[in-house]
Design a protein around this nucleic acid. Structure first.
Lengths: 190, 190
DNA sequence: GTCTATAAGATGATAGAC
DNA sequence: GTCTATCATCTTATAGAC
């Protein structure tokens, strides 16, 4: 029955702030006010802002792994898995003007320390590798007949979802993401 | 023989700063130092930072129009035009860790005034409309046989280029953009 | 147009009491 | 763990001299 501890609550709120405003466009003050603590308390849990960023990326990447494992376990077939993958991103914008945490961090990458850059890269590579594996398995099972190399399609899908989130938020419309899904379908069948 | 005036030099440097670091991650101080003036001089030309952002988006959109007109005039055929369009973005990352100005502004959209949001939206829509027109003309001329609705492909191309720029910079590799180009080719031929 | 000077508030961060 | 108090610095912005 015990509540989430402060570090978790800070991460929850900070995650939303990064997704909505960007890592450089929110302050410890904003975060403190939203969580109901003082800025000094944030520094206790995350001494520097980069530490908060690291924790955010670590948690977000762990959640990605869980989500991918969940899709692999529960969605039968390549098409369902890919649809589930796209749905993860569709839900992100739907949940109030957010983009992918990793995409948001990627926009600020030049202002971040090297290990955060590595974490961003790792998230993107892991996503593309998973998609690539799903497509290859789908082809080997005879379910898919992609006209292009699966690594090409996977990289393009990751790119286009990141871009579609940006576009969808700017336009306040889920359409860009839906169109990515439709274009993907065309790439997966001869 | 007269040099560019200060306003233009400010815009030139500010454009690079936005593309590299983001609109919220550079200050009038940074800009002043890079151009060799004092911050008060920037305020003379652009009273508030939002004014600078507006001028940046206006100029960038005008340049888009010129570039698109140039491609229409000089590149014969739909394939060449689309290749030229993708090349515009490939050159952006190649020119030192930059992303599209509009994509960078889109990442910060929730912190920007409404008219800047409109300018972002306008840039993205104009891009997709142009691509859409090129594909339709290419099909009507018998040059292309796209497997999907041209508006779907156009929106996806714009999304994926924005995302590929983010990804390419984070990974310090032009590969994501090249793979977008390859995937596009697959979408344009049955 | 550009400068010096300055304001008013924000920012990431620390020291030390409780 | 969380607080109060404080810091040095940065940020956008303005007033007024040159």
């Amino acid at each position: 029955m015990s509540r989430k501890d402060t570090a978790d609550r800070l991460l929850d709120v900070a995650e939303t702030l990064v997704q909505r405003r960007g890592f450089n466009a929110f302050s410890y003050r904003d975060l403190a006010a939203a969580v109901g603590v003082k800025t000094a308390s944030i520094h206790y849990h995350f001494p520097a802002k980069a530490d908060l960023g690291r924790a955010l990326m670590t948690r977000y990447t762990e959640r990605l792994e869980s989500a991918l494992a969940g899709l692999t376990a529960s969605a039968p077939g390549a098409r369902n898995r890919l649809e589930g993958f796209v749905a993860m991103y569709r839900d992100t914008v739907a949940a109030g003007d957010r983009i992918c945490l990793c995409g948001s961090m990627a926009a600020d990458v030049e202002t971040l320390p090297d290990d955060l850059r590595s974490a961003i890269r790792n998230y993107l590579e892991r996503s593309a590798d998973w998609v690539s594996g799903v497509i290859r398995a789908g082809r080997e099972a005879g379910e898919l007949d992609p006209r292009t190399d699966e690594r090409t399609i996977a990289s393009m899908l990751v790119s286009s979802l990141q871009g579609a989130l940006l576009q969808a938020r700017a336009m306040r419309s889920p359409e860009p993401i839906e169109l990515v899904e439709r274009a993907l379908a065309a790439l997966l069948t001869t």
